[in-house]
């Protein structure tokens, strides 16, 4: 019998990017741009990707190591303020098992030299899956990838 519990956690990560808010926002709102940096493990093949970036729209992504566990990301966009804010809810499945549901807020502030991005995740982690530090670390990796991508675009 599954042990039922729910662990709640909130973490916030800030970054300053060398690009104007509209460009940083586009890295989230454009499917091709987002795919280049957002999905943790660049070496994992993406087998399904649905991307509908609007309030009420959904995102669905299936990835994972070849021959290994399916990692499934399902999101619904709750609030979008162009170039300023995105709020979405998402859940993660490992195989058939839902491991978490989170509410994510991303804010884009214009600062001298670029954009201050503030990423806040409020999550609930289920039934013994409690690698919250791993979730935060994976998020940091993604935001580092975004930094690299924005710098490469500048140099191009």
């Amino acid at each position: 019998m599954t042990i039922r519990n729910a662990k709640h956690a909130t973490f916030t990560i800030e970054r300053v990017y060398p690009a104007a808010p509209a460009r940083v926002f586009a890295a989230w709102s454009d499917k091709e741009a987002k795919t280049a940096w957002a999905y943790c493990h660049e070496e994992w093949p993406v087998s399904e990707h649905v991307f509908d970036f609007r309030e009420g729209g959904r995102e669905h992504l299936v990835t994972g190591p070849a021959g290994g566990t399916r990692h499934v990301f399902d999101a619904v966009y709750h609030d979008i303020v162009p170039d300023q804010r995105i709020v979405y809810a998402y859940d993660m499945h490992l195989g058939e098992r839902r491991i978490s549901v989170s509410l994510t807020t991303i804010e884009f502030f214009a600062v001298a030299g670029g954009t201050r991005l503030v990423f806040t995740e409020q999550g609930v982690f289920f039934d013994g899956y409690d690698d919250i530090a791993g979730r935060e670390e994976g998020t940091r990796i993604g935001l580092d990838n975004l930094d690299r991508q924005l710098r490469q675009q500048r140099a191009a």
């Binding site: 039922r4 709640h8 619904v76 709750h78 549901v101 509410l103 999550g123 609930v124 289920f126």
Partner: peptide, 29 residues
């Protein structure tokens, strides 16, 4: 509704609007 375990757990996300203005988004467990 985001997660339902019958007789054990319900997880949802919800928005509140006052008239036309969205005032909050919440995750409720």
């Amino acid at each position: 509704y985001q997660d339902i375990v019958p007789d054990e757990r319900i997880v949802l996300t919800y928005e509140m609007h006052m008239d036309k203005t969205r005032i909050s988004v919440s995750l409720g467990t």
